[in-house]
Simulated assay, not measured.
Amino acid sequence: MSSELTEEEMRRALFGTPQPEEQVSAPRVSEHVPEVVPKKPATAPQVNKKTAKAFTPRLKVTLRVGNEFEGKMTELIHEADTLSSLLAEQEAVRAARKKYKYVELVSVKSM
């Protein structure tokens, strides 16, 4: 028995026998159908309810800032809307650097 297979036999072994494709006829176009416009049902006017304010996590970052080296320093409090103390610290320092040259972190507390 020969182990040589023809290309056609290999295709049949891998992919199976080809099945004839079924021809699908195009859908019929029906005659003009009158359009029906849906009307809004009559409902009572809705009363705007006040939604409860969702809890947003906040951290209070306290910084000492100043423009003179070893000069007068003032305290600055920044509120951040995050749970990450690192992100809150970075955000506060970035905001303080816009106005002050020297920034020192004092504390990061949750509110």
Rank of each mutant, 00 (worst) to 15 (best):
M1I: 04
M1W: 03
S3E: 08
E4D: 08
E4R: 06
L5N: 06
L5D: 04
E7Q: 06
E9T: 01
E9Y: 02
L14Q: 11
T17P: 06
E21A: 13
Q23D: 15
V24Y: 08
S25V: 12
S25C: 07
P27K: 05
V29Y: 02
S30Q: 09
E31P: 09
E31G: 14
H32C: 10
V33P: 04
E35V: 13
V36P: 02
V47M: 11
V47T: 13
N48T: 15
K49S: 11
K50Q: 10
A52M: 03
A54L: 14
T56D: 04
R58D: 02
R58V: 09
V61Y: 01
V61G: 01
L63T: 03
R64T: 06
G66F: 02
F69I: 01
F69Y: 12
E70T: 01
E70D: 09
E75F: 05
E79Q: 04
A80T: 03
T82C: 07
S84A: 07
L86S: 08
A88S: 02
A92E: 00
A96P: 05
K98P: 03
Y100G: 03
Y100F: 05
V103D: 00
V103C: 05
L105E: 01
V106I: 10
V106F: 00
K109C: 06
S110Y: 06
